[in-house]
Amino acid sequence: MKVDNKKILVIFLGTHNAGPVYAYEMTKGLIQNGAIVSAIVSSYTANISAWRSLPLKKLVELPTYHDKREFLFETCKLFLYKKRKLQSLFYGEYFDAIYSPFFAVWNHWIIKSFHDIPLLYTVHDPILHSSESKLNRIINSFVAKDIRAADTVIVLSSIFRKYISEHYKKRNEDIIVLPHGTFESYRDVGHDRTEARGWYQDHLNSINFLFFGRIEYYKGIDLLIEAYSTLEKRYSDRVSLLIAGKGNFSPYRDAFNQLKNAKLLNYTIPDEDVMSLFCGQNIVTILPYRDATQSGVINLAAQSSSLIISTNVGGLPEQLDYGKAGILTEPTVQEILETMQDVVENKEKYTELVEYGKIKVKTLTWNKLAEKLLRRI
């Protein structure tokens, strides 16, 4: 059901990881619901061609930065003249709301340029992950300011509603829960010869465990490797492990190199190749996180009929309907090992979880999520 012609300005100045796809999908959903949408996006965002294809009223591409050196230089230019130029491009235009779908550093300063317009702000990580860097903690202070300034705060899991309400003094009616949508813009497979497809082809008779995402301490890579090491010794060629994602892998490399049936793709997986990670026989997606908010990986796995193992932390249990759409375990080596071992021995008994997950994820369309958002304006 379309919502009458709400005028929205989307601000997203991130470039990589999940942000570009999430922001694009939500913006597309707003348009499908009849909103008149303009957008300010980074010229360097990974999916800029997709943004250019949207029927936006106005698309402003803002050159941001590629690295830390450029960040300092370009941020100075932002304050010297880019902000004024940006404001002039929208002079005299009316908007019902500003929408920030995913945090990026420059978002904060651009949002402040439109301070007199109601702000809808999505908070992906209400609570910082363990072992966050000092830089990320500084950056999080910008997030806190944006949350306080927001007229409507969107969280992706209901368990964070109370935290936002108490920590930021928000009324309950000013907080809405919009679960993570299913990434529809990833193409099925970029090409037939991805490294992942080749790996699965070599392990047709194995239970193929998959970790996909940025390499971060809080995601429990070390717990996974230690558990899998024991599992591999017990089951030899009946199991394999694929770890795919960019990040500092040096703390885990020595232990990983001792594994026999394991492969590492330590780079940003191109959007067109993402689904190839889930296209194979007996793929079991595993999230061994120490702490978490939510994960788009769960939806990708569910829509691909992959069994999911997740630790019982943060918003992950809610995403999995508390065990109906995936297996929940505790974030310890022993618990992860025992769960993986049970899957190797009894994978067929989890068929209902896979089917439930496929049905659940079909309800999480961006069209429906965007409609719910628009009804709050």
Rank of each mutant, 00 (worst) to 15 (best):
2 K>P: 09
3 V>P: 06
3 V>Q: 08
4 D>P: 08
8 I>N: 04
15 T>G: 00
25 E>M: 12
27 T>H: 11
28 K>M: 08
33 N>S: 13
47 N>Q: 07
48 I>K: 12
51 W>K: 01
53 S>W: 03
53 S>M: 11
57 K>V: 07
61 E>N: 02
64 T>F: 07
64 T>V: 07
68 K>A: 10
69 R>G: 06
73 F>Q: 09
83 K>A: 05
85 K>W: 10
94 Y>W: 10
98 I>F: 11
104 A>I: 06
105 V>D: 03
106 W>K: 02
107 N>V: 04
107 N>R: 03
113 S>C: 15
118 P>Q: 13
124 H>E: 04
132 E>W: 01
132 E>C: 03
132 E>I: 02
135 L>V: 13
138 I>P: 00
138 I>C: 07
145 K>A: 08
145 K>T: 07
146 D>Q: 10
152 T>C: 13
152 T>Q: 09
155 V>K: 04
157 S>T: 10
159 I>A: 01
161 R>K: 15
167 H>E: 11
170 K>D: 11
170 K>C: 09
171 R>H: 14
172 N>Y: 14
174 D>S: 15
176 I>D: 08
178 L>E: 02
180 H>M: 12
188 D>S: 15
190 G>N: 12
195 E>D: 14
198 G>H: 11
204 L>A: 15
207 I>G: 02
208 N>L: 04
211 F>Y: 15
213 G>P: 10
215 I>E: 05
221 I>Y: 05
230 T>C: 02
231 L>D: 01
243 I>S: 06
245 G>E: 00
248 N>H: 10
255 A>P: 04
257 N>P: 02
263 K>E: 12
267 Y>R: 15
267 Y>G: 10
273 D>E: 15
276 S>N: 11
278 F>S: 08
279 C>Q: 13
285 T>M: 03
286 I>Q: 01
329 T>L: 02
330 E>D: 11
331 P>H: 10
333 V>E: 10
334 Q>D: 14
344 V>A: 11
347 K>G: 05
350 Y>N: 09
351 T>M: 06
351 T>C: 00
352 E>W: 07
361 V>R: 03
362 K>P: 08
365 T>W: 00
366 W>G: 02
367 N>G: 06
373 L>W: 04
375 R>V: 11
376 R>V: 14
377 I>D: 06
